[in-house]
Design a protein around this nucleic acid. Structure first.
Lengths: 154, 154
DNA sequence: TGACAATAAATGACGTGTCATTTAATTTAA
DNA sequence: TTAAATTAAATGACACGTCATTTATTGTCA
């Protein structure tokens, strides 16, 4: 049953399975804090680079393409982010973390640390380097490749 | 900027990026057919193993955990799947492809072939073997590991 | 300077994913 | 042999992801 399955098909489903499982794990650990893996990514990005316009934030996110209007909308409602209209061009919206959002950023780092620790028990740094290199190649023709470079992951 | 980023963080976001990009690519190619990547997985699994109960189908799917009631519900409504109550235990529902669903299965294979061909231009079989081996290790403690074995991917 | 092109954000529409709870059918065991 | 435990599926609730369309603001150039 096993040997006749194409490697590329295994690859397809293993990528899917790892992404899903990782997300479930991270989500479960974040649960007590009241935010989600997507929130966590936004919080991390903003902490490092705020203030950002919605458009610029969108260009930095890996969790979703396009402009993250609704993701941000929810985070504003929940009090993690504050929004202001750009003083020089009111088409733009400027985003930054609230105090509560800053505190959340610290919690995110702690929980990320737990997840990273767990992953590092499963795969060595060398093994991850090999995988990362090859996955980077996979993405080279897509816009997301630029995003990953911009984020410092390639 | 690059060298100070932990490998494990790169790994996290590369897995996410590849899964998302792959899904977008596959979705775009499927678009003319009227179904989605999740539909395609259900169709492939059913074609190989029908009839299946909802529970058994759920245990075979990688795209989602739990029982895929609503996914199947939509596919029934769209005419890809037919549903019948199990004659010996009416708690169970038995699922199988309609004629339209069988035809869809052929189209799925063609489009999967296109995607696989593209992936194989980016990564060699050997490279994928290396990645698949390591990603399998990553999943060894989770229920999804059993699913992948059951599907023939590990 | 004033219609029109360009740009950013908001919104509509649709299909996921996930977990918790409820409903319906069957087993089990007192 | 029937009340309670167990099991499968359906449903509620909530947060995504994606693409297309609409709205609001700014540039631009005739």
């Amino acid at each position: 049953m096993n040997t006749s399955v194409k490697e590329v098909e295994k690859f397809r489903y293993l990528i899917l399975a790892v992404q899903r499982q990782g997300n479930r794990m991270f989500h479960a650990l974040l649960n007590k804090t009241g935010f989600t893996p997507s929130y966590a990514e936004v919080i991390s990005v903003l902490e490092l680079r705020q203030p950002l316009t919605l458009k610029d934030l969108g260009n930095l996110l890996i969790c979703e393409t396009g402009s993250p209007s609704r993701l941000v909308e929810r985070m504003v409602k929940d009090g993690w982010i504050e929004k202001m209209i750009h003083p020089e061009d009111s088409r733009f919206v400027l985003l930054q973390l609230t105090i509560k959002g800053q505190e959340a950023a610290e919690k995110v780092k702690i929980i990320e640390g737990e997840v990273y620790g767990w992953i590092e028990k499963q795969l060595s740094e060398k093994e991850m380097q090999v995988i990362n290199d090859k996955l980077g190649k996979f993405l080279k023709d897509f816009p997301i490749h630029e995003t990953l470079i911009h984020r410092g992951y390639l």
